[in-house]
């Protein structure tokens, strides 16, 4: 590759990078139910799942700035 070509490609990358931005998105997961049964007789065991969750989570993604 000639020098001019390399410089051109580098310029495009710099330009593209300058246009990118990070975005944080919140998410969470909660346990909404479990099915647990007794081995002995197959009866369902009541299991309380209230309050079991991941707490607040974030996922960071990269997007184009003009978007």
């Amino acid at each position: 590759m000639k020098l001019i070509q390399k410089l051109s490609l580098l310029a495009m990358m710099v330009l593209l990078t300058a246009c990118m931005a990070e975005e944080k998105v919140d998410l969470n997961v909660k346990l909404s139910g479990v099915k647990v049964t007794r081995l002995s007789n197959g009866d369902t065991i009541n299991v309380e799942t209230e309050g079991v969750n991941s707490g607040n989570l974030t996922y960071t993604t990269t997007v184009l700035a003009n978007q």
């Binding site: 998105v25 919140d26 998410l27 969470n28 997961v29 909660k30 346990l31 909404s32 139910g33 479990v34 099915k35 647990v36 049964t37 007794r38 081995l39 002995s40 065991i45 299991v47 079991v52 969750n53 991941s54 607040n56 989570l57 996922y59």
Partner: peptide, 26 residues
């Protein structure tokens, strides 16, 4: 994204299903 502990006071139980529900903007 979720870590839980199930505690059984004997070995007479078996887990058959587990359900999660998602939330947030993601």
């Amino acid at each position: 994204v979720l870590a839980i502990t199930m505690t059984s006071d004997n070995d007479n139980a078996r887990l058959e299903e587990l359900a999660i529900t998602a939330g947030g903007d993601f």
